[in-house]
Design a protein around this nucleic acid. Sequence first.
DNA 1: CAGGGCGCAGCATTTTATGCCGCACCCCGT
DNA 2: ACGGGGTGCGGCATAAAATGCTGCGCCCTG
Lengths: 165, 165
Amino acid sequence: MLPGPKLDRIDLKILAKLQQEGRITNVELADAVGLSPSPCLTRVKRLEKAGYITGYGAHVNLNKLGEFLTVFTEVTLSEHRRGDFSRFESRIVKIDEIVECHLVSGGYDYLLKFVARGVSHYQSIIEGMLESDYGIEKYFSYVVIKSPFIKHHFPIQNLFGQTHA
Amino acid sequence: MLPGPKLDRIDLKILAKLQQEGRITNVELADAVGLSPSPCLTRVKRLEKAGYITGYGAHVNLNKLGEFLTVFTEVTLSEHRRGDFSRFESRIVKIDEIVECHLVSGGYDYLLKFVARGVSHYQSIIEGMLESDYGIEKYFSYVVIKSPFIKHHFPIQNLFGQTHA
DNA sequence: CAGGGCGCAGCATTTTATGCCGCACCCCGT
DNA sequence: ACGGGGTGCGGCATAAAATGCTGCGCCCTG
């Protein structure tokens, strides 16, 4: 038994492949994982329906679109009661420019990732958050100068099997 | 052939759509952006070739695969000479478990994102980096407890037009 | 050893991808 | 204003892929 309840080796190969080539044809995918198209498609549909695959997306090169600003922002909430977290989360998810939200352990509460037109745009979003009742005690911004790499996939092969390969 | 004004409104709609539905059929995409399939496909191919679209990927639900560890790590290099940065970057890109690398302004140099099997796995990777000559002066780890949301797309519509729509 | 269920390959049909063609529109030069 | 050239679009024909159906072999179980 490899992973959780119902994923075999072939399922993992499918996930790994689709993670890196999301628009591969089912015919090619089937060949890559050693199945014929029919059962391969069946598995993909099953993985989608079961929630292992939550969607597909093109990787758009932001830098080619223009000069935009990416910022990682550390946020500390002023209160840490039941509800303060969910309230904060439910509000920021509506802000398009906040593309990621992580609750972390350590010196602060949330690590957010922003994508904005520039510093003034970013600043206006932050100010809006401070003025409204988001429950923010303090924040700190780390402007991204460059992203040497962003792999759009995690190492499925390393997360499994590595121990008894 | 300057890289800027090569994209018209339709191109942006294509990018926005593919960002969120990377496996949409060309027929549906064409309909969504108001073109017939032929010119739509031509544009997509052009956007891919020109580097606006760098690839496609499935969004795999890591949590459903098991209990894994995601960590954001702040790294400060010991030296900041020409070459120290590129050397560091060229080495860490080879580590599968490091899925993102951002050079930031502020209190440290790099913000890295790790995905590992657990703390011991993460620790072994970090130790390997410290023992080898990566040029790391110090680091700090922020373990991700939960990721309330990760949008796999940035707000193309907001980054444009908002100012002169 | 026999019965039942599951997953796979093969096949037929529908849908999509892709390349080709002629037409309309726009920009330019005359 | 008129004519020529280039670009991009829609329509059409063909190749390829997606999809649903069917029968077979394997494995578990009694």
